[in-house]
């Protein structure tokens, strides 16, 4: 059994693996299991010019953009459900031309991570035939040619090389993604980096396996023996993980199934303050730069609010939580 201990603190992990201009992907979906502690630490360390890959991470993407960390974005969906039908800082940045964005569909993004994880240059799908997602590029030919980490074209339509086999005349080829680093927040991990995601894994596993480096943050650090009692319930092998950080509430203010719900108070306040640049600067100062680390932010939120979002043992979320 490997015994390497990858346990570290978040400041060190972000400093070591997330660099100015790096290609980054983060796990989670809309308002669930985004690696928010890591997102806030990236903002605190003022790491900029990030090339970000996501399918539908709402809150994490919006905060990284709001924090001025993102230069380019490849994405399927920027929304946080009812809290922001379009992510607010994302929308402002795209309309102001301060970030470049290239659109895909969710399945295309999942397959792109899958292709990266498999070590093949592309995978086929029928999604997107006849649409502007195939026709319109967010990144120019020139930009692609100048960046060895980008494929020379966005999506390619190919005739089915097997003729009528599969009853599909054409397919869209989606290029693989190879992030420099993927950051996930998971429910359980051990010090080596074996991880167990509870509830929906979204595309987290493909995202991790497609990356060169992987940072895991976890709500609970558990003994390896315990995870190895049921290996079929684990999704990420320690062999692909570079850093493990134990951070209770590491997905806060997004949800972590069976641990805590999203915090509607925080998300609503964020939504309000994100609407103009002045109040957003105050938000950043008060909640992110003004707190030393994630425990600092949680202390500011207070035990009472954290208690309200505790997951109910039966349902895995905070039952009857006031979400208005």
């Amino acid at each position: 059994m490997a015994t390497s201990d990858k346990l570290t603190d978040l400041r060190t992990a972000i400093h070591e693996f997330v660099h100015e201009g790096c290609h980054l992907s983060i796990g989670g979906f809309t308002i669930n299991r985004n690696p928010m502690a890591a997102v806030y630490e990236i903002i605190r360390q003022r790491i900029g010019r990030i090339h970000l890959y996501a399918h539908s991470n709402g809150q994490g993407v919006d905060e990284l953009i709001g924090g001025g960390c993102v230069e380019n974005l490849e994405i399927a969906y920027a929304g946080s459900g009812r809290f922001a039908s379009t992510c607010i800082r994302f929308r402002k940045a795209v309309e102001a031309g301060t970030i470049r964005v290239e659109d895909y569909s969710n399945y295309q993004m999942s397959l792109r991570f899958q292709a990266g994880a498999m070590g093949v240059p592309f995978l086929p799908t029928r999604s997107g035939l006849g649409t502007d997602i195939v026709r319109r590029w967010g990144f120019s030919k020139k930009m692609r040619e100048n960046d060895p980490r980008l494929p020379d074209s966005k999506l390619t339509v190919m005739e089915n090389p097997f003729g009528e086999w599969g009853d599909v005349p054409k397919v869209v080829l989606v290029p693989a993604i190879h992030p420099d680093v993927t950051i996930l927040h998971v429910q359980k991990a051990d010090v080596q980096g074996t991880a167990r995601i509870e509830g929906l894994p979204f595309s987290d596993v493909e995202q991790a396996l497609s990356a060169e480096k992987v940072i895991l943050t976890c709500d609970e650090l558990v003994e390896s023996e315990r995870l190895r009692e049921y290996p079929e319930q684990n999704q990420i092998p320690h062999l692909r993980v570079d850093a493990v950080v134990h951070i209770p509430y590491g997905a806060y203010p997004t949800a972590c199934y069976r641990y805590y719900d999203y915090d509607p108070v925080y998300l609503a306040r964020f939504g309000k303050m994100a609407k103009d640049d002045q109040s957003y600067a105050e938000y950043l100062q008060e909640y992110i730069y003004g707190t030393e680390n994630h425990p600092g932010l949680l202390a500011k939120i207070g035990e009472e609010r954290l208690k309200r979002i505790q997951a109910d043992a039966r349902t895995g979320y905070a039952k009857d939580l006031d979400r208005r």
Partner: peptide
């Protein structure tokens, strides 16, 4: 649920897999 990633979609489902 207030989003398709809400934990409320996970509870009591027949199968929870991923996007793929």
């Amino acid at each position: 649920p207030l989003a398709v990633g809400d934990s409320r979609v996970m509870y009591g489902a027949a199968v929870n897999r991923g996007l793929s």
